[in-house]
Write a protein that binds this DNA or RNA. Structure first.
Ligand SMILES: [Mn+2]
Ligand SMILES: [Mn+2]
Ligand SMILES: [Zn+2]
Ligand SMILES: [Zn+2]
Lengths: 143, 143
DNA sequence: AGTTAAATTGCAATTCAATCTCAGTTTCAG
DNA sequence: CTGAAACTGAGATTGAATTGCAATTTAACT
C-alpha cells in the first residue's frame, strides 16, 4: 500500500520508481521504530539491496515530502525519522537519562492545540511536542 | 540580575567571569527575540566588545546549562536560542511560508501535559511544542 | 527490439555549523 | 607578587548533509 502511494507520488512528479528508491521505501516500512539515515543505510545493505548514502538521503526527503515518513527530531548527531503511514499521530516523551522514547496521544491535547491556533489566526498543519524528563525506571533508580 | 546568577553559576563550577563571557551574557540580554550563534557573534562585534566564535559557542552552552538561555529549536542551518530569564515559559508557532514565530502560552495546555506525564509515570521537566503551518498574513496571500 | 532524451545513480568533493587543539594570555587565591 | 589553573582565539577538524558530474538506467515512442 505504501508502495502504491509512493509510486503515485513519483509518477505525479515525473520521477521514476527505481530499485534504489523502492529498496529504501521497503526498508523503512520493514520495521517499526525510530531511525537515522546511517542506520537505514546499513540495514538496506544487510538486507542485500543496494543504495548509496546519497540515495538514502535523497529518497528519505521524497518520503517525507509525500507524507509517508516524518522527521521526528533533530539530535546533536543528526535527524531521526519514523514512518507514519499506518500509524496514527502521536507525540514523544524522551528520557534524559536512558534515552527511552515513550509515544503518547491525547485527543484533548490535539483539540486544545486547534483552539489555540484558531485564537491566533494560524492555520496549523503539523506539530511536534517533545516532553523531556525522566522515565519511571530512571526515576526510581535515582533514589 | 542575570549577571549575578551567571557569576554565581560560574563560581560554583570554578569557572571565571571573563570579559568575553560577560560580553556574551550582556549581548544575549540586550534584546528580546530569537537568535543563532553567528548573529550573536556579529552583534557582539558591533557592540564593540570582542569574543571569538569559539567563545560565543562555549558561553552559550554555559548559559543554557545554568538556565538563563534556552535552545528554542534546531533548523537546517543551526540552533536557535532565546534568553529565558525574565520571560515566562511559552511555546511557538512557526510559519512555513515567511518564518514568522508566534509565541503563545496556555495554562490549560501545560496542565494537560502534566496529567499526561503522570499517566505515564514520567517526570517531565521541560517540553517543546512547535506548531507549524501558515500565519494569518501568508494564509490570505495564498488566495 | 531499438533509439533517445530525461532521470538517476554513486562517488568524491564540498559545505558549514559545531567542536576541538594548543600555544600564548589572563585570572585570582594564597 | 607569584604560579597553577582557567581561558582565549585562530585555525584545524569533524561529521552530517548536500552537490557536481560522468556513467548508467529508465521508459516513452517508434
Ligand atoms: Mn514515534
Ligand atoms: Mn520565544
Ligand atoms: Zn529513562
Ligand atoms: Zn507567514
Amino acid at each position: 500500500m505504501e508502495t502504491k502511494i509512493f509510486r503515485n507520488f513519483l509518477g505525479e512528479k515525473g520521477l521514476k520508481p527505481t530499485k534504489e528508491r523502492i529498496a529504501v521505501l521497503s526498508e523503512v516500512f520493514s520495521f517499526h521504530g525510530h531511525f537515522d539515515p546511517e542506520y537505514l543505510y546499513l540495514r538496506i545493505k544487510d538486507a542485500g539491496s543496494k543504495a548509496s548514502r546519497a540515495s538514502v538521503y535523497r529518497t528519505l526527503s521524497l518520503l517525507v515530502e509525500c507524507g509517508l515518513v516524518k522527521k521526528v527530531t533533530r539530535t546533536e548527531k543528526g535527524n531521526i525519522y519514523e514512518h507514519t503511514y499506518g500509524h496514527s499521530h502521536h507525540d514523544h516523551m524522551i528520557c534524559d537519562a536512558c534515552g527511552e522514547i515513550i509515544e503518547f496521544y491525547s485527543e484533548k491535547l490535539e483539540n486544545l492545540q486547534d483552539e489555540i491556533c484558531a485564537e491566533n489566526s494560524f492555520a496549523g498543519s503539523t506539530h511536534t511536542l517533545e516532553i523531556r524528563g525522566h522515565c519511571k525506571k530512571c526515576r526510581t533508580k535515582q533514589s
